[in-house]
Amino acid sequence: MSTDTMDLLDVLLMRVLDGEATHDERAKLLKLADAEPRLVEMKELRSRLREALSERASEAPEVVAEVLAALVIDDGWAETADLLRSELEVGSIDMVEQVMDSLEVGCEPAVRISALHDGELDPAERIELAQTLSRSAIMDMTDWADNGRHLREALSAEVSAVDLTDIWGLVAVRVGLTNPEEVPGWEPIADELREALREAATLTAQDEVALTAAVMNSLPRDESIEDEPTEVSASLDEQPAWIRWASKPWIIPIILVALFAIYQNRDLKEEQPEVQETVAAVEEPSSPIEAFVIASHNQVLIEDLALGDEVTVAVFQAEDGAPLFLLIDEGDEEEATL
């Protein structure tokens, strides 16, 4: 086969593939293919080529697929293709390494400059490369670095201002999760986390109280909390606390109870012989010291009550059996606390 013949065959084949070949050109291509000595034995190939070229001239025929199919059948390349495929699958050819080597060789200056820009070179390499660059190039790179920093800062500021709270919910729906709070596959990990947290978070009663107190003591509190003044409260606030308590209707029976208790106490003292006990050892109470639950029925009587200067006290018991309240107003501030 001559070179001219092959060139003409190639040109005609390209025109056929591009859908630009005329009827005459197709006929000429078939004629050349039949005359080509290397294609003489490839009957299947020439047959498929003929069928492809006989299709409508306005459309690009599927010549490539037909020819490749014929080649696989007739030309014996299948064995070569199989060998190539097996080599690639076994991995004896380190294609990645070769490709990267070729890239590094081909892109050496750009890659190194990029590494210099990103601060990925060690000091010696940085100095060596910088000496090869012009001053203007270094200044340009400095400007780019500054621009990159400004861009990162601006992006960070924008991102921090965006509320991403609901993003996961939207993403979860898109990836097909019905419940965003339940991610499949995390149950075993969640169980372990739950168990570990339960063990670590269990506090003794004393620790719990101490923790509560510590937290409360650490919380800032506004010292100037005041009630919204109303006409009624304003008029009450003008009076001393003991007058306000004395004006309560329930104070009279309570005072009577207290006085009665004091009177009873005198009787008790008179009846009881004076016994001088010697403190030799502590009589431990029968019940251990543990958290006391406030009883549903309480009984407390006040026998005696003495107050410091400016201190006022009101005694209050909401109902029979309720704990008795001694309401103290320390009197060191104008505003009553109770």
């Binding site: 509190r221 010292e223 201190v311």
Partner: peptide, 25 residues
């Protein structure tokens, strides 16, 4: 501030209230 004598039934509770503390009592 206060000096009181109380007679407390076994297991009973009484409450001393009112000392000011951090905006409350």
């Amino acid at each position: 501030l206060v000096d009181t004598t109380v007679r407390v039934k076994r297991g009973s509770t009484f409450v001393v209230a009112g000392p000011k503390h951090k905006g409350g009592i």
